[in-house]
């Protein structure tokens, strides 16, 4: 929960750094596997996959919210100490800010990647 900034401050680590792209990974695999499962064994390729699209849509909203929370948490903590982009001093603070800022960047990338990756469900309505 700390990871999503719901309470307290977070000590950033390599795990918090990769949280957002990991959410991207889970969402991506879920969307692909779920759609593939619903379409298998490809017997009726013209059947509508409306339900699948809704499920993927819900998963997408969930993933975007989680990534958004990671982003917000890292952003707030990074901004709290001035939000500088230079973190090359030998202090625990600079290490922390470096991780926070990198988390912000990765969360932004992951957010865009999730939104971009699901665009096919807006356009494709069956299993062709």
């Amino acid at each position: 929960m700390r990871l999503f900034g719901l309470y307290g401050r977070t000590q950033d680590t390599l795990w918090t750094l990769i949280a957002a792209p990991a959410i991207w990974g889970v969402h991506f695999l879920f969307s692909y596997f779920y759609a593939a499962y619903r379409c298998a064994p490809n017997a009726d390729i013209f059947a509508s996959i409306g339900g699948t699209r809704i499920v993927v849509g819900i998963a997408t909203v969930a993933a975007l919210v989680l990534i958004g929370l990671v982003f917000r948490r890292a952003w707030v903590e990074w901004q709290a100490k001035g939000g500088t982009v230079r973190h090359d001093r030998d202090t625990a603070e600079d290490r922390e800010h470096f991780l926070e800022f990198s988390t912000v960047l990765l969360a932004a990338l992951s957010f865009v990647a999730v939104a971009f990756d699901v665009m096919p469900v807006l356009l494709i309505g069956d299993c062709r």
Partner: peptide, 10 residues
């Protein structure tokens, strides 16, 4: 299915 290809294409 095209939906699978779409995810990977994106």
């Amino acid at each position: 299915p095209a939906i699978s290809l779409g995810f990977f294409s994106a």
